[in-house]
Design a protein around this nucleic acid. Sequence first.
DNA 1: GCCGAACCGTAACGTACGGTACGGTGATGG
DNA 2: CCATCACCGTACCGTACGTTACGGTTCGGC
Lengths: 211, 211
Amino acid sequence: MPGGLSKEELFTPRQQQVLTAALDLLVEQGDRLTMTSVARRAQCSKETLYKWFGDRDGLLTATVQWQALKVRVPQVDRRKLDAPSLRASMEQFARDLLTTLCGDVSITLNRLAITHAAGEGSGLGAIVLENGPLAIRLRLKPVLEAGRDARLIRFEQTEEAYRSFYGLVVRDAQIRLLLGEAHRPEAREINADAARAVEQFLKLYGTGPLA
Amino acid sequence: MPGGLSKEELFTPRQQQVLTAALDLLVEQGDRLTMTSVARRAQCSKETLYKWFGDRDGLLTATVQWQALKVRVPQVDRRKLDAPSLRASMEQFARDLLTTLCGDVSITLNRLAITHAAGEGSGLGAIVLENGPLAIRLRLKPVLEAGRDARLIRFEQTEEAYRSFYGLVVRDAQIRLLLGEAHRPEAREINADAARAVEQFLKLYGTGPLA
DNA sequence: GCCGAACCGTAACGTACGGTACGGTGATGG
DNA sequence: CCATCACCGTACCGTACGTTACGGTTCGGC
């Protein structure tokens, strides 16, 4: 979220320790972690948890927010953009995306947010939505538009191009992992997938002879 | 699942009424439905629920299985396959897929399965996985291979082609809906998306001049 | 050395809900 | 008419867990 606070401003170091413990427990045992288990793992009292975070939901929300603050947004270099460097940028992007989505933390937090989105508040769903798919779009957008400005790719709407790229990269991998499929791709597969996705994207949207 | 029982063999009419009630409640209030609420809605006793389904998890599993039995698999006509009919088949397929995934029932059951996949058993995750992404692959496979046999499209592995098609069709729509995004596409948007996805797929895998 | 603030550890409370027991009722069959 | 069966409705039990309360400890400030 633009204009947001950094994690140092939002949470004290001690609080970050607590949130780390909560995230670890979340990854280990899903969202049936108890306040007692978090307090024990973080070596703090339940009273402190409630004082700091209000209630269980507040703790989970803070954990998700805190994790979201950790993703950094690398900026694109808009100068000297040629076909190879655009391809490299996009492949790097695809690799990062796949690696993140296949990681334990992403799977855990997406599951948590989806579980909560079923209920009433769904504040968690909104947070993950903003820091997941929507943040990805925000990060990819300048890359795509730089490519368009350099006449390397062509598209009507950035939104459309972004979504096609997302689909080509992620395909059904995320939903299968969320549903509990055991297989996790290795680095080699991720690299291959990223290369293939960019290749296909450039075939669809590239201007040059296969870009 | 091939060789499985039909829903008439698996569940009595009365039991199907109960499962319908359970599914309705699931759609209405997520998986925090209680056994009591199901019994009340279905006008049956809790004792009967436990006698029929064992425990809460058994009831949820039966509900998902029962819903899964309802999806029928339309067969492809392998004769007289030309470019327009292949395109039409794939567009129909894409429309069906998008319409299903954007529906309340699909969203609810996928959320339920994802929630349970976080825990231990994850039997639900496996069921939805088999009847969701994997069943889609099974259904699409003959279409793709018929297209390949007719020299209309070209690919090395059916798996690869299937996954690319899935990505082009679904993109980030499903994860966004699961995370609670309110927007549901209308029929017009779904038609447009299906047409675009097939167009793109044929550009990537077609043999002819834009098939 | 004293005070209050912040925090730990633990015990206790309240409640929601999964699961069970049991009495009552209508249908079927002899 | 009675026995059996399948089921409804409801009261009840056990427990897990969120939440609160409270005594004890550390630590910074005066």
